[in-house]
Amino acid sequence: MTELLGIPPQVLFGQMLIGLINGSFYALLSLGLAIIFGLLNIINFSHGAQYMLGAFAAWLGLQYFGVNYWVALVLAPVCVAAFGILLERTLLRRLYREDHLYGLLLTFGLALIIEGSFVHWFGVSGQPYAVPESLQGGQNLGFMFLPTYRGWIIVASLVVCFGTWYMIERTRLGAYLRAGTENPQLMQAFGINVPLLITLTYGYGVALAALAGVLAAPIYQVSPVMGSNLLITVFAVVVIGGMGSILGSILTGLLMGLIEGLTKVFYPEASSTVIFLVMIIILLVRPAGLFGKEA
């Protein structure tokens, strides 16, 4: 195959694939943040820690209880969501009437405590998690080699993201969620249990983070700090997409992953900063974000 701007196509497509995979994680995580922010008005800084908890739950399950990957894919998000629900019921609930800053500080503090505890127990060096047998190997697509597991990540996260989008935009439950975001008090007056809706929404957002963690376990090291590294980038993605926009967070997540991948090909030095550059430009041109509504 011919080269493009002096770049072999294998390299180009390889980096685009990595970009798409990172983008899948950005999408899953920023989607959870967007849902939580929409209804709870809280910027969930524990999101990275909850992503890490998902990966650890999978790893611990396999290590100590022989729970395989497929079971962990369901069980880990459920367990981490239950933990999130506990936090919501006992702590977050007290902050809804307060300024954003309080929720941010509380969730940030919680993240530090959770991550600190895991560093204490497991150290900072990562734990390996094997790719499940049925997803080992790969396909030669002609122009590139596609490891099966990486393809699976992209498909799984796309299905979950767009399934979530469909649920929110097209179903009765989603209508409750959208309406609750706009005017929770009136929803109560209509007979809808808004506190329960809020709890379940937080649980779902947390479950998305944990699911991303399980998906990430076989390709990244399962480490206590895996979430905090990722979260800063994810927040930049959220700002670019527009805070609280569901579709915006999904598409922006994928797009930013791709842009990052392409930067690695054409100007590797900027690959870790390009998303923040995009963020600055977007903030200058469209302060509400690509998909956000002007207040």
């Binding site: 209508a175 959208r178 309406a179 975001t181 706009e182 005017n183 008090q185 009136l186 929803m187 109560q188 007056a189 209509f190 007979g191 809808i192 249990n193 808004v194 506190p195």
Partner: peptide
């Protein structure tokens, strides 16, 4: 609790009408 008042057969129409923009 507020969310159970409606269940007693009460319908409330607020002054600002409360039409949801996202619906």
């Amino acid at each position: 609790p507020a969310h159970q008042i409606a269940r007693l057969g009460v319908g409330y129409c607020p002054e600002e009408r409360g039409i949801f923009a996202s619906l």
